[in-house]
């Protein structure tokens, strides 16, 4: 048996076509986990990062925390969350949020700090208040960096969300862990391929977003730098 026939087995299995173990269902579970994790991470990290980047206070602390958080073992965190709480979404969300927040935080800080100081000076000088400078000048200027941060965070979260299955929850990790447990390697391989495809899809999505959704002035500025 080679991996190609594993994959054809996996995709032709009727259980994977419809029902609770269907590919569509598992993917949507996976995406919901990831989406929630990213949302919470963004709600915490982006405003904090913008503020830290704008004031310039606490930048060294942020860098330290971000480095530390990257070193956290995700599987360990999931297990810990389950041991401390119970088996539910939160157990998986905590480590995923912890994984997604550092790149977002760093991106927000660096993005704002990257604003041309002359532009900031001019903005203040013609009468923008601090919140206006942050919102109207620094945020657009930080947009490309912030988007890159989201891209990194999303791909990491999609890949890591497979561990949800480890504590008995859904998502594409289900295939991987169930396949391993029942020695159906076709299922494991299929699940892994799907995770990879999803991550690549996310990469593409953000590449397109950076290409078409950013204001032209910001885009061009990035190109020349």
């Amino acid at each position: 048996m080679n991996w190609l026939s594993w994959l054809s087995d996996f995709f032709s299995d009727p259980d994977h076509r419809s029902g609770p173990d269907s590919i569509v269902h598992r993917i949507s579970e996976h995406l919901v986990f990831c989406g929630e994790a990213l949302l919470f991470a963004a709600l915490i990290a982006v405003p904090l990062g913008l503020l830290i980047g704008y004031t310039g206070r606490g930048v060294t602390i942020v860098t330290g925390i971000a480095g530390f958080a990257r070193a956290l073992p995700t599987l360990g965190l999931v297990t810990l969350a389950v041991l401390l709480g119970r088996v539910d979404d939160t157990a998986v969300l905590i480590p995923l949020v912890a994984l997604a927040a550092p790149p977002l935080l760093v991106a927000a800080v660096e993005g704002v700090r990257g604003t041309d100081p002359d532009v900031r000076d001019a903005a203040r000088g013609i009468g923008l208040t601090h919140p206006q400078v942050l919102w109207q000048v620094c945020l657009p200027s930080a947009a490309p960096t912030l988007l890159a941060g989201f891209r990194t965070a999303t791909v990491q979260v999609i890949a890591t969300a497979t561990v949800a299955a480890y504590v008995g929850l859904g998502g594409l990790g289900r295939y991987v862990f169930d396949g391993l447990a029942t020695r159906k390697y076709a299922v494991t391989a299929g699940g892994a391929v799907l995770v990879v495809l999803l991550a690549i899809g996310a990469q593409l999505f953000f590449a397109l977003l950076a290409r078409y959704a950013l204001p032209p002035g910001v885009r061009a500025q990035r190109r020349t730098r």
Partner: peptide, 15 residues
């Protein structure tokens, strides 16, 4: 807002 301000590098908003 009641005083015009022009600086060396213009400082225009790029976006």
């Amino acid at each position: 807002r009641g005083i015009g301000y022009v600086i060396q590098q213009a400082g225009l908003f790029p976006h």
